[in-house]
Simulated scan of single mutants.
Amino acid sequence: MANELLSYILALVVGLSLGLTGGGGSILTVPILVYISGIEPVLATGYSLFIVGVTSFVGMLGYFKEKLVDIKLAILFSVPSMLTVWLVRRFVVHNLPDELLQIGTFTLTKDTALMSLFALVMILSAVKMIWFSDKADSEKIEQPNYKVAIGSGVVVGILSGLIGAGGGFLIVPAITLYLGLPVHLAIGTSLLIISLNSLVGFTGDFQHLTDIQWPYLLEFSLIAVIGVLAGVYIGKLTNAKKLKTIFGWFVLSLAIVIIINIIK
């Protein structure tokens, strides 16, 4: 009961992050589901895609009302990304053997590999948010590089499929650095891309997620939605760069906890 209550409290953090920064919350969802709720990693990545997809879509509506969503760019980015994430979920993740590698007494399992990759992505995301946010938020180019947008969509799709993260920590810097969007427009557009990626990715799990705990999944998603609405509101009143830095340190700390658990 205590763990369930804690997971719901952290669901608010997931939503707040998505609403404030257009990303980040998704990389919190899997660790919460695995280490707090006790859900096995592969199933948790599927749950995460649903939670993040629903939450991001609701958060996007707040930015859409303010005309801070670039629909054309979202579609351009999302098409290759959605195709990639669906293929990865449908044909790769669930077909990986439980034991990926064995050297002597060391055995690398699928769950350990997924959580290790997750920790690595979290560290890279945290470093970007803490030390490179000013660069990503301020640099602009005159001619958007749409080839880079498509390529970034594929990369985001692969990562989203493997680790159940929406990819906002990659999408926001990609569309600010390479496509010249202001940061608030980038956040709104990122939320639309994340929602499309995540929900399409979740459909690739349908034949495997036979034991979905729908009451818990929907309750967690509802609380995260409340968080994202609060995040969108607070984001209009608060220094987004400072919040992103604070959240970056939080993500880095969580990644270290995951690595410690893996080593144990």
Rank of each mutant, 00 (worst) to 15 (best):
residue 3 N to Q: 09
residue 3 N to T: 08
residue 5 L to K: 11
residue 6 L to D: 11
residue 9 I to G: 12
residue 12 L to C: 13
residue 14 V to K: 04
residue 15 G to H: 07
residue 19 G to T: 10
residue 20 L to D: 00
residue 22 G to E: 02
residue 25 G to M: 03
residue 25 G to L: 01
residue 27 I to C: 09
residue 29 T to W: 08
residue 36 I to V: 13
residue 38 G to A: 10
residue 39 I to R: 02
residue 43 L to N: 10
residue 49 L to P: 05
residue 52 V to L: 09
residue 52 V to W: 01
residue 53 G to P: 00
residue 53 G to Q: 01
residue 56 S to W: 03
residue 59 G to P: 01
residue 60 M to G: 06
residue 61 L to M: 15
residue 62 G to N: 12
residue 64 F to T: 12
residue 64 F to W: 15
residue 66 E to G: 05
residue 69 V to L: 09
residue 69 V to G: 02
residue 70 D to Y: 02
residue 71 I to M: 12
residue 72 K to I: 06
residue 72 K to P: 11
residue 73 L to K: 02
residue 74 A to I: 05
residue 78 S to V: 02
residue 78 S to W: 01
residue 79 V to R: 00
residue 80 P to M: 02
residue 86 W to L: 14
residue 88 V to T: 06
residue 92 V to R: 10
residue 94 H to Q: 07
residue 95 N to E: 12
residue 98 D to S: 09
residue 99 E to Q: 14
residue 100 L to K: 06
residue 100 L to S: 08
residue 108 L to Y: 08
residue 111 D to N: 15
residue 113 A to R: 00
residue 113 A to I: 00
residue 115 M to K: 00
residue 119 A to I: 03
residue 120 L to A: 14
residue 120 L to S: 10
residue 122 M to P: 03
residue 123 I to K: 04
residue 124 L to H: 06
residue 128 K to G: 15
residue 128 K to P: 01
residue 131 W to Y: 13
residue 136 A to M: 14
residue 136 A to Q: 09
residue 137 D to Y: 06
residue 138 S to L: 04
residue 138 S to D: 07
residue 139 E to M: 09
residue 143 Q to W: 07
residue 144 P to L: 07
residue 144 P to M: 12
residue 146 Y to T: 06
residue 148 V to K: 14
residue 151 G to I: 04
residue 152 S to H: 04
residue 153 G to H: 07
residue 154 V to Q: 05
residue 157 G to W: 00
residue 159 L to D: 05
residue 160 S to M: 09
residue 160 S to Y: 05
residue 166 G to S: 10
residue 166 G to N: 07
residue 168 G to F: 06
residue 169 F to V: 14
residue 169 F to R: 07
residue 171 I to H: 01
residue 171 I to E: 01
residue 173 P to A: 10
residue 175 I to R: 00
residue 177 L to K: 09
residue 183 V to H: 00
residue 184 H to M: 07
residue 186 A to L: 12
residue 188 G to T: 04
residue 189 T to N: 01
residue 190 S to L: 01
residue 190 S to C: 04
residue 195 S to I: 01
residue 196 L to W: 02
residue 198 S to M: 09
residue 201 G to R: 01
residue 205 D to K: 13
residue 208 H to E: 08
residue 211 D to Y: 10
residue 211 D to F: 13
residue 212 I to N: 04
residue 212 I to P: 03
residue 222 L to V: 13
residue 227 G to A: 14
residue 230 A to R: 03
residue 231 G to V: 01
residue 232 V to T: 14
residue 238 T to L: 13
residue 244 K to R: 15
residue 246 I to E: 05
residue 246 I to F: 14
residue 247 F to V: 09
residue 248 G to Y: 06
residue 248 G to D: 02
residue 248 G to H: 03
residue 249 W to A: 08
residue 253 S to D: 01
residue 256 I to E: 06
residue 258 I to D: 00
residue 260 I to T: 08
residue 260 I to G: 04
residue 261 N to T: 05
residue 262 I to K: 11
